[in-house]
């Protein structure tokens, strides 16, 4: 398969597992943040800042961003290899698909670096 060379784990089984492990991490993070926002009596800057100043929360958030990198790589790969195909897009499909994939990876990498900057730079 030509398309599998751009998958994250180079095999469907690895991608399948990465997708699920990262999904559980992301779900846990969003539930945690949702609970923090809904559970706060009043969401002030001081409280919000204190939530993200702890090392554990910063590790958890960076873990979520790295999980997002893997999760979205596998997810966007699944989408582009299904729809940006020669049958649906014509002979330029490979160039188009690779371009979209490169853009996706650059965006995801930027999210991770941006996240580090937000967590440790502010």
């Amino acid at each position: 398969m030509v398309t599998s060379v751009t998958s994250l784990g180079r095999s469907g089984l690895y991608d399948w597992l990465l997708q699920r492990v990262s999904a559980v991490v992301l779900l846990a993070w969003f539930v945690c943040i949702g609970g923090t926002i809904l559970g706060a009596p009043e969401l002030t800057f001081v409280y919000w800042k204190s939530v993200f100043s702890g090392t554990a929360m910063r590790i958890f958030t960076l873990l979520a961003l790295v999980s997002l990198f893997a999760h979205a790589w596998v997810g966007m790969w699944s989408v582009v290899t299904d729809y940006l195909t020669e049958r649906m897009m014509g002979p330029r499909a490979v160039v188009l698909r690779l371009t979209v994939q490169v853009v996706c990876v650059i965006v995801l990498f930027s999210y991770v670096v941006w996240g580090v900057q937000i967590l440790w730079g502010n």
């Binding site: 800057f45 919000w48 800042k49 993200f52 941006w114 900057q117 937000i118 502010n122």
Partner: peptide, 10 residues
């Protein structure tokens, strides 16, 4: 992420 950045900056 843009919101997280703005909410934590100051």
């Amino acid at each position: 992420l843009w919101m997280l950045d703005a909410s934590l900056a100051s």
